[in-house]
Every structure is written in C-alpha cells, then in structure tokens.
Simulated scan of single mutants.
Amino acid sequence: MKKEYIPLSGFIIALVLTAVAPILTGNSNLQVTLLFPLILIFAYWTKMNAAELGLVFGKRKEYLIAIAYPLISALIVITLATISGHIGPINLSFTALIAFLGLFFTTLILTVTTEEGFFRGWLFGVMEKYEFSSKSIILLTALAFTIWHIPLFFIGTGMEGAYNMIPLYLSTVFTGGAIMGTIRYRSGSIITSSLSHTIWNSVNYTLFGFGTSVGILGIMPINIFDPERGYLGLVINALFLIIFWYYTFHFPKKSNS
C-alpha cells in the first residue's frame, strides 16, 4: 500500500468499526472506547513513537491558549444570553459540582486515549510522518473528526433523531476540530489539545447541555445560545479559527525544547 493511503485506510477502518459496533451491541460507548486499541494497533503498524503521536508536553504558553479558547467561548455565549434575557432558571447545586468534576477527570483521560489520541495523535502524526502539508493535516483531520461524529445521531447518545441539528452541529465540530488541530500543530502535543477538548466538553455540557438537553444555566434556545449546538457558537468558533490560523501561519513555529 502506498504510504499516502495509510491515513485514509486507518480512518475508514476506525469509522466503520466504531459506527457498527454500537449498533450490533447496543452499547454506544464503544464508538469512543474502540479508538484506544485502534491507536495502539495503528501506531505499531506505522512504527510511530510517543513523540510522533504527540505524547509530549507543550510549552506553558500553548496550555494557556488551549485553556483560554473554550472558556472565552463559553463566557461570550453566557454574557450574550444574559444580556438578551435567555438565561435561567439556574440549577446550581453540590451534586452538579460533583458531576462536573467527575466529567472533567473522566473526559481528560478519555480524550488523550481516544478522540485526541486517534485524530490529533495517530492520524495527525502519521500524516506528518508521510509529509503531508501542515495546513492539509489540520483540515483533513478536522474533516475526519467531523465525519466520525455523524453516527452520534443514530446510535443512542442523546442526539439520536435530532436530524435538524446535523448541519449546524457538524459545522461547529469541524471548526472546533481545526482549532484543536492548530493547537496540536503549535504545541506538538496531544496533551495540550486534550486539555482544551476536556474543558470544552466538561464546561459546555454542564452549563449548556448535550444532545437535546439543557444545562444547569437553563439557557435557551440551544440552536442560538450554545457553544457547540448554536449559531452563536459557530460564529465564535469561526472567529477563533481565523485568529489561530493567522497567528500560527504568519509567525514562525518555535521549537518546544
């Protein structure tokens, strides 16, 4: 097999297995968890080391950028929802705090070993190894990440049947995936992008909700005032992507050493 086809082949295998397994078993968690053994198998197949997989620590500045992106995005949506009177009733409680902390630490482990580990780890790394251009790697891994999310609407994850959400949701996933890819490229680390991904999921799913649910802030309508499912979130993500893209490719990339 030509090396240029290996990233596509790996992605297709992962897409099929992670889409079919939940349907056959009735366990939607397999869509995510199956990525872990696939990362190990593909990394062995393509003879990739830890650094090539992004299993290194990035610079402090890159962590600050990774943390700031999801927090600023959420803050903008909350501010505009509050000003326009679309917030509440707010359901803050000790139980919600415990649930948030559990979600945060669980997601941090899972993102490194599954979604980030596969898309910004193996897939990103193998494309770098086979000398794809940096811009094409970011965009193609974001596209793969987006396509991988389509089965969420069919396999019992809380989004099944909400087909009207697909175009907007996938558009935001693509821009978010490209941002995570840019973070990975800048830092050379999936630990950095995983931290950003973890904050995005845990903060947004707690405050705003997931699927068709509403979060603890009671912000509605979700197709407008939501970082991941709303038009406002898509605009914010697009602006972040433009800023990140310009900053990354108009200034020299520095070594992480």
Rank of each mutant, 00 (worst) to 15 (best):
S213R: 05
N223P: 02
G102T: 08
I83L: 14
I219L: 04
Y44A: 14
G215C: 10
W45T: 02
F208Q: 14
S136C: 02
I23G: 00
I242Q: 00
L101E: 05
A68D: 03
T95L: 08
R186I: 08
R60D: 08
L80Q: 06
I23M: 14
P70S: 04
M220Y: 10
L17K: 02
Y69L: 09
P151K: 05
L143H: 03
R60H: 04
W122R: 00
L241V: 04
M220Q: 15
K2L: 06
L71Y: 08
Y169E: 05
S257N: 15
L168R: 02
E62F: 11
N256E: 11
G209R: 07
L207I: 01
F154A: 13
N29G: 15
A99T: 13
R186F: 00
K3F: 09
S136R: 14
I83H: 03
Q31K: 14
S189L: 04
F154N: 02
L234K: 01
F153G: 07
R184Y: 11
F208Y: 07
V77Q: 06
T18I: 09
F119Y: 15
N201T: 11
I41P: 01
N201R: 08
L71R: 00
Q31H: 15
Q31L: 13
G211C: 01
T46R: 10
S9T: 13
N201M: 06
I147M: 05
G85N: 11
S73K: 11
S257E: 13
I199P: 05
V32C: 09
A21Q: 00
F251S: 12
F240C: 07
K129F: 06
I6F: 12
S202W: 03
A142K: 04
S9M: 13
E128M: 11
S136A: 13
F244P: 02
S84E: 10
L101F: 15
F11H: 14
R60K: 15
I13M: 12
T141A: 02
L110V: 11
P221E: 05
G161K: 08
L143F: 15
N91E: 14
S73C: 11
T206M: 15
Y169H: 04
F225E: 02
S171W: 05
L170D: 00
G125I: 01
L207D: 06
V112L: 11
F132I: 03
L75C: 08
I137F: 06
I150F: 13
I242D: 02
N29I: 01
L40Q: 01
S93R: 09
V56C: 02
F251Q: 12
F210Q: 13
I243T: 11
F251P: 00
G177K: 10
G85Y: 11
N164W: 11
A43Y: 05
L152K: 01
I78C: 08
N164Q: 14
E115K: 09
H197N: 07
